[in-house]
Design a protein around this nucleic acid. Structure first.
Lengths: 340, 340
DNA sequence: CTGAAAGCGCTTACAG
DNA sequence: CTGAAAGCGCTTACAG
């Protein structure tokens, strides 16, 4: 029922080679034959079978996006950006949830894709070696890693976090705690590093108890904050490694009868829209998540076209969004954001 | 560099047919040859090329998930569920953002997938006709539609919304408003219908001004609530078509100097975890979003195996999660939820 | 049980 | 410019 290139050739009285040429536009064809072929194509509603093309061309025109778990708005936005950019270039996007991608899993996937975008944490040394061997181009959602043959796309985690800290310090807070991400998070590590550096640079003490850990969930932020508030000298400000932690922390402050930002100020990271709707609206470091997905695809496509260029790392700027949880007297929950 | 079936055959001293047989396990082979082939497979690290298999078998073992835009936690969870289930059956998942999928776009996709899961709103009459013509199996994330040849997977929107209304009525509220979803949302329509029915059944007046509309964003919920509060007789409770609307509405109440739930109670829909972390924690109708994605894939796979069975609609139950925005005196932001 | 061969639907040197 | 043919890497009747 589905027309093939043979059907078109027969109807247009030409060979399949000619049909292929006019459909692909990759070679000169007489205007007259071309018209005949096009006519047949339309009549039969012919569309080349992409699988057959894939076999002949050794290219699938599909990319894979690999992230350990698709369960938060972050992943949704990465997918949104990546799919949009892929589609703009006539590529398709496959998604896969794999935390521990290895050479073997990669090999099973490799036949159906031309390249992969992989969440920073899962792109291990072994994996990249395997990818290289199978000549699968790879871009990391994360920083460049020495000796790993993978381009990188990442937000400026360190700088963003540092600015958040300077903002808190500027408000006059001097007992600043940090609820960090899990140990396994490369981004989290950079944000924690900036936390320490900013305090150090401003000669502000940083007691060990002021460093707590969560796993990027609301509840872990809640728990961490409870711990912080039970300290004999609780912090007067907390910088959280992401907005979910910050929202959890914020509720904990309320639950224990304190107030944000009067008793303790809070700043998050990600700049999620939802942060504008908690009480008080959450100050946060915005990172362009959807754009990260878009640029990752862009980079991958570029790499596929230029296999021998040197590694490229794209660092996207962050921007602090001032709302009220930091102590700023904002006019409205939306108007005060500096980000577009 | 990548081993093909020919390489394996040569090494094992058999024909490619035999290699295919042992690798696929679809036919009897002497234990001895089988061992030789397996040995060669291992040595060469052979994995069949899925594209070639796809061409030969006329099946790609990949499914497409089509939703207009991947930008909220809802879509992330659908992807999570769908990909998990697909992977469990050795299928892959392609995602695509298309609001107005039509026969033509479908045809371009059809060569690379065996079936599609499509967001309710986009599965029009025309589309389904096209899908049927191309014998592409389709499952709707939404209700069954008369005369449309597509299985359906959906949460019990009507019942969930009705229960939410009864809960508010049980609290004693009598001026209950509704912030509905956009006109284009099938789910939204059902929730609005339940709103009206519950009031009707309890002989509670429902002034026109109490029906507002949003587009499932925080900000539209905020604006709608502002409008409601400016009424000469503002509502004392508001049922929102989703949690984002509810969070926006909640902030609006605070911004205008009122209190939730004392001045106006709020109930949302979706039961997002994040709703537990606003102030006050949001009562909501939980729907198993990830499971919707999982069951959609399950249904699609079942349909592919049983093309002639009659249409199937799976309705998943919702469950009201009592937190504090409705007026319930909850012990903790988490402990009071009735949902697991 | 095993192999030779055709077929899945394309693309692209190679001739003419 | 156009066609015949080989090739992409598999699967599966059909013989033997």
């Amino acid at each position: 029922m589905k027309a093939t290139i043979y059907d078109v050739a027969r109807r247009a009285q030409v060979s399949i080679a000619t049909v292929s040429r006019v459909v692909s536009g990759r070679a000169r064809v007489t205007e007259e034959t071309r018209a005949r072929v096009l006519e047949a194509v339309r009549e039969l509603n012919y569309h080349p079978n992409p699988v057959a093309q894939g076999l002949a061309l050794q290219s699938t025109r599909t990319l894979a996006l690999i992230i350990d778990h698709f369960d938060s708005i972050y992943q949704a936005k990465i997918v949104a950006g990546a799919e949009t950019e892929a589609r703009a270039h006539d590529y398709h996007l496959l998604v896969q949830q794999v935390a521990d991608l290895d050479g073997d899993k990669l090999r099973r996937l490799s036949g159906r894709i031309d390249g992969i975008i992989i969440s920073g944490g899962a792109s291990t040394d072994e994996l990249l070696r395997a990818a290289t061997e199978q000549s699968i181009h790879t871009v990391r959602l994360g920083s460049l890693v020495p000796d790993l043959r993978a381009d990188a796309v990442v937000a400026d985690n360190y700088k963003g976090a540092y600015e958040a800290m300077e903002h808190l310090i500027g408000h006059g807070y001097r007992r600043i705690a940090h609820i960090a991400g899990p140990e396994s998070s490369p981004h989290g590590k950079l944000r924690a590093k900036a936390y320490h550096a900013a305090l150090e640079d401003h000669a502000i003490p940083q007691p060990k108890e002021y460093l707590a850990h969560g796993d990027y969930t609301h509840e872990s932020g809640f728990q961490a904050m409870v711990g912080l508030l039970e300290l004999s000298e609780p912090p007067d400000a907390v910088f959280c490694a992401d907005d979910l932690l910050a929202m959890g922390a914020n509720l904990a402050v309320h639950e224990l009868g304190y107030s944000v930002p009067n008793d303790v100020a809070i700043v998050g990271f990600d700049g999620l829209e939802t942060g504008a709707y908690v009480t008080p609206p959450l100050t946060s470091v915005y990172q362009p998540i959807e754009q990260l997905g878009r640029v990752a695809v862009e980079t991958l496509l570029w790499r596929m076209a230029h296999p021998d260029e040197e590694l490229r790392e794209t660092v996207l700027p962050t921007e602090i969004v001032l709302r009220r949880s930091c102590g700023c007297p904002a006019v409205s929950h939306v108007a005060s954001s500096t980000a577009a």
